[in-house]
Design a protein around this nucleic acid. Structure first.
Lengths: 210, 210
DNA sequence: TCCGCCAGGTTGACAGCGTCTACTGAATGC
DNA sequence: GCATTCAGTAGACGCTGTCAACCTGGCGGA
């Protein structure tokens, strides 16, 4: 027997929306369905949120928060490259275990950021975790004369990680004959190639961990 | 004065849907709006498509087709690595000039593939262009014992390219202070890091083209 | 020539959606 | 004790995709 939820309706709405999106994706989010499930009229949520987008922004912000928390909670290492590897693993882990939440954050047409400063702040924090970590790691110099190498390398690493899980979780991947083992292998190889790209691993010296 | 479109309604519907998606994204696709714009009743398209998803699948298939065509039309090189580089450029080029179409193919919840074999075939062709090209290039051996290295390396390259333009075009990127120059720089650096990852470029020898 | 079929168009209806407006009742402040 | 404000309800509007019934012009066969 479920105990009745005594939290303010505002919190209940966000929780319920979060649950719906995690289970069925953002397309399935319906204000009226949520209101019905919470046992209130279809207009009640409007007393707490100006529009559907405002609820969505709240869920997105919350998703970024738990994503950042997951990254911070990775195993730590004194060795910068190893630590970066842990972060990469944590990134992939989150994306593969929370695919719809991940898709919501990175693959969706989000509400206008100007209207939702909280969402903006939470999303920026996720990127700065990666960027800050990179600052203290001696990556191989590419001598391409860019003035903010850490920023571009952060983008590169992010892009690779994102691309990997985004593709593996995408509908397009379903069009390819990929087993779960294939996916795991792809992630492993990607992590090794990533190490090579950053100058942390030679082709010759690699038959195990990065 | 626009000449009246004399093609079968079926073609007109697909063209119009394609146009809407390229201009305003898949969320803006409305059957009734299309019918109105074509000057027919809202039910007319149903004589040619079983549902909205069937129209969508047609547009997706067409998008994959033009994507593959764009990849095939890249400048060619006898040098395998250079040719791969051209392909990467062509990939980024398409994604940056057709952002909504790209997003449709790779970042959208697509119609069920089992119901749309044509869409499936067109999407597989895009991947096989990359995969086939890789087969004849001597990439650095990672000695990780995977039995289909080309497949996993194709996934890696695809993931990196996809991640790059997916992120640069995503709404999340708008939350970061990125100028157009930054984006171009990120793409350049990514292409160089990609070369390094594949063993085609040393850190020391790189201050120009890959 | 007439009949029937049928592909391709029409109109009308339905449920679901987000959102606007108006109303109600309870709590709060002066 | 009255006014204001907050939280929730109820109904309507226009939009969506989809189902059903109806109409119509052209074609094939008798």
């Amino acid at each position: 027997m479920a105990k009745p939820d005594t939290r303010p309706l505002k919190d209940q709405v966000v929780s319920e929306a979060f649950k719906v999106i995690a289970e069925a994706g953002v397309e399935a989010l319906s204000l009226r369905a949520i209101a019905k499930r919470l046992g209130v009229s279809h207009q009640a949520p409007y007393k707490h949120f100006a529009s559907r987008d405002h609820i969505l922004a709240e869920v997105v912000a919350r998703s970024f928060e738990s994503f950042a928390t997951h990254l911070e909670a990775r195993p730590r290492s004194e060795n910068g490259f190893e630590d970066l590897g842990f972060m990469g693993r944590a990134y992939l882990e989150f994306a593969m275990t929370h695919p719809l939440q991940y898709r919501l954050m990175f693959n969706t047409a989000l509400p206008d950021i100007d209207d939702h400063p909280k969402m903006l702040a939470k999303s920026q924090r996720s990127f700065s975790i990666l960027h800050d970590r990179l600052q203290t790691i001696p990556l191989s110099d590419l001598r391409d004369g860019l003035d903010q190498p850490a920023k571009h390398d952060a983008m590169f690493i992010w892009a690779t990680l994102h691309g990997c899980c985004s593709i593996l979780n995408s509908d397009v991947a379903k069009t390819l004959p990929l087993t779960d083992q294939d996916k795991a292998d792809t992630m492993d190889r990607m992590m090794r190639r990533l190490s090579m790209a950053l100058g942390a691993l030679d082709a010759e010296s690699s038959n195990g961990k990065a």
